[in-house]
Simulated scan of single mutants.
Amino acid sequence: MGQSNLAKVIRERRSVKKGYTNKEVTEGTVRELLDTAIWAPTHGMRQPWRFIFVGHDRLPDFARKVAETYPEEKRENRENYLNEPNAILVIIMEESDIPKQWDENFGATSSMIQNFWLLAWEKNLGVVWKTNPHIYDQEVKKILHVAENEKIIGFIHLGYFDEAPASKNRISIDDKFTSY
């Protein structure tokens, strides 16, 4: 029995961290992908996410502002790093003071990101979920108008690519599975 299309996409999906082409990642494309990605499981239908799209034209200004939150000696490196993708999608999650709801919100948001990633892969749009130190920085939260009860989950770097990264093996399920 052959692999389903979904199984194929799951197994072939890669993190595309560099080697982006100049093809523009449009807001329309990102919105289209998100429109399906948000069908992820979400406890209590809380849908705890929101998004900030930084397109290619706004990226240099955005990268400079975020880089300025770093110590002087790291700023140029961080600005260059943030200008590598064609666009960035910032994922913000509503936090809860109730640990169970916080975990559920994070699980739902992570599932939504995986959906987005798989849908993007089908369109040859490269994605990598970045959790660099700036996502925890209060100044970056101010730049992005992130509320007190919200958390930046990650910067999703986006860009089209010509060559997919090599596959990396996974640990066998036999090494990670037991029966009770």
Results as ranks from 00 to 15, higher is better:
Glu122Met: 02
Lys23Cys: 04
Asp103Tyr: 07
Glu150Trp: 09
Thr109Cys: 08
Leu33Arg: 10
Glu104Asn: 07
Asn169Ile: 02
Gln101Trp: 11
Tyr20Trp: 10
Ile153Ser: 13
Glu139Asn: 12
Asn22Asp: 15
Ile156Asp: 01
Phe51Pro: 06
Ala67His: 05
Arg46Glu: 05
Ser110Ala: 12
Val30Phe: 07
Ala166Arg: 08
Phe161Asn: 03
Ile113Asp: 07
Pro71Ser: 02
Thr109Gln: 07
Phe51Leu: 09
Thr36Asp: 10
Glu32Asn: 14
Arg46Ile: 07
Ser96Gln: 11
Ala108Ile: 08
Phe53Trp: 14
Phe155Glu: 09
Glu32Tyr: 06
Leu119Ser: 08
Gly44Lys: 09
Phe51Ala: 04
Gln101Ile: 15
Val25Lys: 08
Glu95Asn: 12
Ile135Phe: 02
Glu150Asn: 06
Gln101Pro: 01
Leu82Arg: 01
Ala7Tyr: 07
Asn77Thr: 07
Tyr180His: 03
Ile153Pro: 02
Glu94His: 03
Ala147Met: 09
Val128His: 00
Ala67Arg: 06
Val128Ser: 00
Gly159Val: 03
Asp137Val: 02
Ser167Thr: 05
Glu32Asp: 15
Lys18Cys: 04
Arg46Ala: 09
Glu163Leu: 05
Ser15Lys: 02
Leu119Trp: 12
Phe62Ile: 06
Lys74Gln: 10
Trp102Ile: 03
His134Cys: 06
Glu95Met: 15
Asn22Trp: 03
Leu119Asn: 11
Gln3Cys: 11
Leu118His: 08
Leu144Met: 14
Val54Glu: 11
Met112Gly: 14
Lys123Cys: 05
Lys65Asp: 13
Val90Lys: 02
Glu12Leu: 13
Gly2Pro: 15
Leu158Glu: 12
Ala37Gly: 01
